[in-house]
């Protein structure tokens, strides 16, 4: 087993909180305690109503493909083994969007609105990345 060479989230502040939930295989986003708006990436206060109060609320994990790019030439050496690979924007049912990968799907089969669900990939002993696969 080679050392994991891909970039890892730095995980400072609220970003670290997000990934700590991922490590527990929970996909949680900030949700305003006042107006109930979801938000991502994490913010200090609600951009809709201004409330500082919020909680990390778990989402269904279901969403759909919003856009993507299929990388055919790696610009970072650690991704050379993956090409071609698609980096996908997934819109979750709750409305927040997450950059991720869709596993178990050839890139040419990607289309707008494709239903996907979250899977958790433990890429290192410390870090888990949320990824997606087509809904069964």
């Amino acid at each position: 087993m080679g050392e994991y060479g891909k970039p890892l989230p730095r995980g400072e502040g609220y970003h670290g909180d997000f990934y700590r939930f991922c490590k527990q295989h929970e996909l949680r986003f900030q949700r305003c305690a006042d107006c109930q708006a979801w938000r991502h990436p994490p913010r200090e206060c609600c951009p809709h109503c201004g409330a500082f109060a919020w909680r990390w609320e778990q989402v269904s994990g279901k969403g759909q493909v919003y856009s993507w790019t299929v990388v055919q030439r790696a610009l970072h050496p650690a991704f050379a083994e993956d090409v071609p690979y698609a980096v996908v924007i997934v819109e979750l049912a709750e409305g927040v969007r997450l950059v991720s990968r869709v596993l178990d799907l050839p890139p040419q089969e990607l289309r707008l609105g494709l239903p996907v669900e979250v899977v958790f990939v433990d890429v290192t002993p410390e870090v888990t990345l949320p990824m997606f696969r087509p809904c069964r």
């Binding site: 970039p7 989230p9 995980g11 856009s67 610009l75 980096v87």
Partner: peptide, 26 residues
């Protein structure tokens, strides 16, 4: 750069070409 580091780069989107490609694809 914090967004890239925390949310894009771990999945292999590491350059402006990748980020703008999402707009172009859509």
């Amino acid at each position: 750069t914090a967004s890239v580091r925390n949310y894009y780069a771990p999945y292999g989107a590491v350059a402006p070409m990748h980020y703008y490609a999402w707009l172009a694809t859509r």
